[in-house]
Design a protein around this nucleic acid. Structure first.
Lengths: 347, 347
DNA sequence: AAAGCTTGGGAAAAGGTTTTCTCAAAGGAG
DNA sequence: CTCCTTTGAGAAAACCTTTTCCCAAGCTTT
């Protein structure tokens, strides 16, 4: 073995099947079949070839295999979520679903730039990805790419799909129900809703669910307070809710964890106890925020990893030729209970 | 099989060079040369072939090209930073550096699981990536993978490298200097340092720089307060700093933005004004936190995108056969000034 | 007019693997 | 002893592109 004598890292050529075959004294065809458990040969021959491949450190060239099989065992993941707040859990789920099938993931950040999007989509197509998953940071906006008529399957996850496509999204209304119903169960009667801007579809979906649950429970529905997704807005909204002109709420359901954080901070500044006087629930379950609030924040988790997992598995079956019904699939959220809601009132 | 009568979109076979050649009435060799600007032929022939390729929507099969060129134009990015706090800016930089060279990035999250690491490294090797970049969430910990003797170049960025490898890291001492010198320039005299646990190498590097700058400026150095990276610790540390037994600081340099956030909140609770009475600087410039603090937080930015860019470019030159000196390359940090330090005192 | 050069384009190999044929030898049946 | 079947393994095509060599025709030079 000459490879012992290299001082600087010399990048050795990988060993090929041809070399394995030559070393084992068989043809490449036989070697291939031996390693893949195909064909017929004596157990002794098969074992000898396997042992040789092992010893030489042979690994089949995936490029050659892909060329032949017309499948690259790669998929592209497109995102415009630069900070990865939503992308990363989702990506982890996708990757988790695919790694067992030997499929790797190209991550492409397209920002909101159609040129960059086209660039990356072209690169994916050139590399013959088996499929594409598009993901974003909000459900009601389309990525700056056109994924129709690409010749390969595309799946949308947590982003606005093309018509006729398959998309996985979180069930925002369901998530909101979880939160408000939780408040109801705990005996809260005056539940407020502080959320993001009206330009977001989820704001309306969640607000409607909020109203529905209150109606179902015979509770008064205050008009949701729309603002921005920021801590500052949560802080400010408390000023509106507790201005003394109206009956103060005993629970606040917030559109995201940052708003909830702002709400909790503002309540503390006013000397209002959380959770004893007012319960607070957030949305997104952004752990690093939810766990840092005092008290730790109960929050709705969108199960993005599971969403990614489902998207990955569905893409896989699509690539495998299985037909799949187009349409929007809503995946349930779950409520992560921490300490910002307390125990049942008067219970 | 019901899949014969396609209800779902049929995925058409991509058009090959052979088809382009046949359509244009030339050989594949000529077609290839025409499209790559190689070989000699009449301008008319070349143009006809180009036009045909265009019309048919031909795109060269990257797999076949890679097989021939023995370069896949892909690299693997390994990370254990699940939340992507550090990985994503870094990844954006890597991607940015590589996209122009037509190189795509496989993102692999290996958690801290050696088995998962091996799985992903094997997958990368099978897919014949041209190189690998390893990145993590702290500089003094090694990823659970062995990247030596892989036969392809590997670069480390923001993680502990193997000996003899090339690594890019942030200059933490330099970053700390920036922060403390900024305080000095503003006329702060009693500068405290609240930072993370002693188990982190960066804690010591920054603390030493903190002491050095104070010594250089003839200022008293208090012992740095070591704790966790959390808001809660920042909050708690204020209790220690402002216990009345010692002279209260007029500036706090924090080990990260969350600590700084905790410090600022605690100061507000005590009625101590930031920045008038006490200036605060954070580390990491995690914008979503830094901009949400009141007042917005001045923070040291590690330039992770630039780090990723450098790592990407270096890997590219390594892949291209250029030699490169092994060793640790420290890239400078920069101070992002917001409003938590105020203007020069008495200025 | 013969020899050499240029021009335009094609044949074929290479890259590494899988799969379908094909074939020789050995064994069994009649 | 001949014919057929099974067994074990190899040859070659296929996947798609690039590149090196090669060749024929037309042109120039002497």
């Amino acid at each position: 073995m000459a490879s012992d004598a290299q001082p600087t890292p010399v990048f050795a050529k990988p060993v090929t099947l041809r070399e394995v075959a030559a070393t084992a004294g068989v043809s490449v065809a036989t070697a291939s079949k031996a390693l893949n458990g195909q064909g017929r040969m004596t157990a002794e021959t098969r074992e000898r070839i396997r042992e040789t491949a092992q010893r030489l450190g042979f690994r089949p060239n995936s490029l050659a295999q892909s060329l032949l099989r017309r499948r690259s065992f790669t998929v592209g993941l497109l995102t415009n979520d630069t900070y990865g707040r939503f992308s990363l859990p989702l990506m982890a789920g996708v990757s988790d679903a695919l790694v067992d099938a030997g499929v790797s993931v190209f991550l492409c950040n397209v920002e909101d730039d159609p040129r960059l999007g086209q660039l990356h989509v072209d690169a994916m197509l050139d590399k013959r990805v088996d499929g594409i998953i598009a993901t974003g940071k909000r459900i009601d906006r389309h990525l700056p790419v056109d994924l129709s008529n690409l010749g390969i399957p595309a799946i949308y996850a947590f982003t606005q799909p093309d018509p006729g496509a398959i998309a996985f999204v979180s069930d925002d209304a369901g998530g909101a129900r979880l939160a408000v119903e939780h408040f109801c169960r705990l005996g809260r009667r005056r539940i407020a809703h502080v959320t993001g801007p009206a330009s977001f579809a989820v704001v309306h979906a969640r607000a409607q669910a909020y109203r529905d649950v209150l109606a179902e429970n015979g509770l008064p529905a205050a008009e949701p307070l729309l603002g921005s997704w920021s801590e500052a807005w949560g802080h400010e909204a408390v000023g509106t809710l507790f201005d003394g002109k109206r009956e103060a709420p005993d629970a606040v359901f917030c559109g995201n964890d940052q708003i909830a954080r702002g709400v909790i901070d503002a309540l503390r500044e006013r000397g209002i106890d959380v959770p004893d006087e007012v319960g607070v629930i957030g949305f997104d379950n952004w752990e690093i925020v939810a766990e840092a609030t005092r008290p730790p924040l109960t929050s709705v988790d969108m199960n993005l990893a599971a969403l990614g997992r489902e998207a990955g598995l569905t893409l896989l079956s699509l690539v495998g030729g299985q037909p799949a019904e187009p349409g929007l699939r809503k995946l349930p959220c779950r409520l992560v209970v921490r300490q910002s809601c307390g125990r049942p009132l008067g219970g």
